[in-house]
Structure formats: structure tokens, C-alpha cells
Design a protein around this nucleic acid. Structure first.
Lengths: 161, 161
DNA sequence: TATTGTTATACTCTATAACTATA
DNA sequence: TATAGTTATAGAGTATAACAATA
């Protein structure tokens, strides 16, 4: 085995890039959750849809696609999946019959609670090295950092992904 | 226009998911940098390769693929791109002639400096809402959180991406 | 004329398999 | 027999374009 092939840390040039670390951290969280959700038969994006629906009376597919920064055409199959398992329901909006009013079902709420518990567990694991105080600062900081992003998304509805 | 279509914030169920916010934050940083680097004719991954090479004498393509969590086959084209522009050089490792010793050139260093300045500018912009103290805490916290991740990557060389 | 949702299709990106040359 | 690098190809994932229904 060639010497120097043992990985004992990132090259300084990479480790110093905060953006790189943060990007990979987000990716790691997502991958970990993806694995945890597999036994539930859903993917992270299904969970995110359920999370949205769990705190909204109803949402249109377009709205959900906007929030998740997903192409609206992907939303079709996503809601199809959930509806086929009885986790949400589509009903035409009587005030604008082009839209659906997508609503979560009781089964959907139950599955969302289980998925949320898994997401919390992943978070607790990944952020385990941090003290409560640090974690709280990080979470609030990220939330504040992202405010302009969400605001900008609102102004330009059709952005590249 | 239907009422309620103006986006004035994320649904509570999404906003409360720290992992979602952090994931999107990483994605945002990457996209922003991708746009900034376009005039330089490179993508984020080229920049990351240059960043690695800038603090290492030489690296093999395999090593770089491991660090970046990219499939080794993708590294071929990446190094091809950089070499074609004279930003790095390939030389066979005399101690193991299967490997390349990839080394950054002076032109490569110059381009890396420019790209690094753009990356710093994106970071300053995105993290602008944070105080210096908060930013410092966040950066160090993420670094600590990622330590086990990089360690795990070292133990299991061939992971799913 | 514009928008929601839908389908089919094209495109991009990544991983897989097979190969070479070295070890 | 295993590994670094390469190539070609298949597969997954995504966006694009065209359509129907409604506004």
C-alpha cells in the first residue's frame, strides 16, 4: 500500500473553505435522513411535503414547488406517491378550479411524526459535538442568513435551480 | 391573481427544520459561487481541485476524488480541463507509475487566487447578516461537526454518494 | 393571454463496467 | 490479485416543451 494514502484530514486548502464545509454538512444531513427514511418508504422530499402540509390547511402544488425550489413537474409524481398511500388528498379549489387544494390526512400526520422523529435524531447525532448554546446560535444564525434568500425567491418566482 | 400566492415566508413546518435550512444554505452558497466563477471559465469543482493543489505539493487523482467525494472517473475530465488550460500538470509518480502526481502551475495559482477572492466575496455577502462573533462561532461549529464525517470517510474509502 | 397541472421527451449528470498499465 | 487511471455506456434525475382545463 502506498504511503500517504491514509486520510488523516482534509488538505488545508479545502478545510479552510467554510462554504465547502457547510455545503458538505448540508449534503451529509440530507443523505443521513435519506437512509433513515428508507424503511418508511419515502424520500426526503416526501417528508418535506408532509412537513409543509402539516402546518398548512391546504397548499397548491405550485406553492409547494416554489417553497422547495423544485420544478413543478416533479411535484406531480411526489403528490401522486403520497396520495396513492393515503397520506394526502387532492381536492379542486372551488375558487380557482385549475388548482388543487392538497391536504394532509391523519395517516399522513402519523407518518410525518415518525419521519420528524428520525430527522430530529439525525440532527441530534450530526450536531452532537456542539453544546446546546452553540447549536442554538448556529440554528438561529442560519435562519437569519437565509431570510434574504427566501425573500429573493419570492421576488423572482422562476429561478434556475 | 389568487390571494395567498404572494410568498411572505416559509410554511412553519419547513422553517422549523434546521436541516432543511442548512441544506439550502449550502446549496445557495454553491450556486452563487457557480455563477461568480462562470466568467473565469471554471466550475466550483475546478476551484476545489485548485484549492487542494494550492496547499499540497502533489496529489493523485484518486486522493482528490476521495476528498471531494466525487467518483474517480469524474476526476479524469476535471484534471483534463485544468491541464488543457495550463492550470495544473500531470507527472507519473516514479515510485508508483500507476499514479499521477498532479501539481498546480503558476497560472493555476493565479487563477485560484482570483477564484478564492470571489468565494470570499460570496461568503461575505451570504453571511453578511451575522456579526463577526456569530460567524466565527458558526464556522468553527461546522468544522467541528464535520470532523467525524471526514474521519468516517477515511475508514470507508468506497462510500455511496 | 396567462396559469395550474399533466405528460412525454430531451438533456445533464453520475455511476457502472470493462479495459490498460502498473504493482 | 489488486489498484490508478481511462473510456464508453447505462442509469437516475431534472428540465423543457407541448397540451388541456380554467382564469
Amino acid at each position: 500500500m502506498a504511503e500517504g494514502s491514509m486520510r488523516d484530514g482534509l488538505p488545508e486548502g479545502l478545510a479552510a473553505l467554510a462554504g465547502f464545509q457547510l455545503s458538505k454538512c448540508g449534503w451529509w444531513l440530507e443523505q443521513r435522513l435519506e437512509e433513515e427514511l428508507e424503511p418508511l418508504g419515502i424520500r426526503v422530499r416526501h417528508f418535506l411535503v408532509l412537513a409543509m402540509l402539516s402546518t398548512s390547511e391546504t397548499l397548491s402544488q405550485q406553492e409547494m414547488a416554489d417553497y422547495l425550489l423544485l420544478d413543478p413537474t416533479l411535484m406531480v409524481g411526489l403528490v401522486d406517491d403520497l396520495e396513492a398511500r393515503g397520506l394526502c388528498e387532492r381536492a379542486r379549489d372551488p375558487r380557482d378550479r385549475r388548482r388543487y387544494r392538497v391536504r394532509i390526512t391523519e395517516d399522513g400526520r402519523a407518518l410525518h411524526r415518525r419521519a420528524r422523529a428520525l430527522a430530529d435524531a439525525v440532527g441530534a447525532d450530526v450536531f452532537g459535538p456542539l453544546s446546546d448554546g452553540e447549536l442554538s446560535i448556529v440554528v438561529r444564525a442560519i435562519g437569519r442568513v437565509m431570510e434574504p434568500f427566501w425573500a429573493e425567491q419570492a421576488v423572482r418566482p422562476r429561478r434556475k435551480r
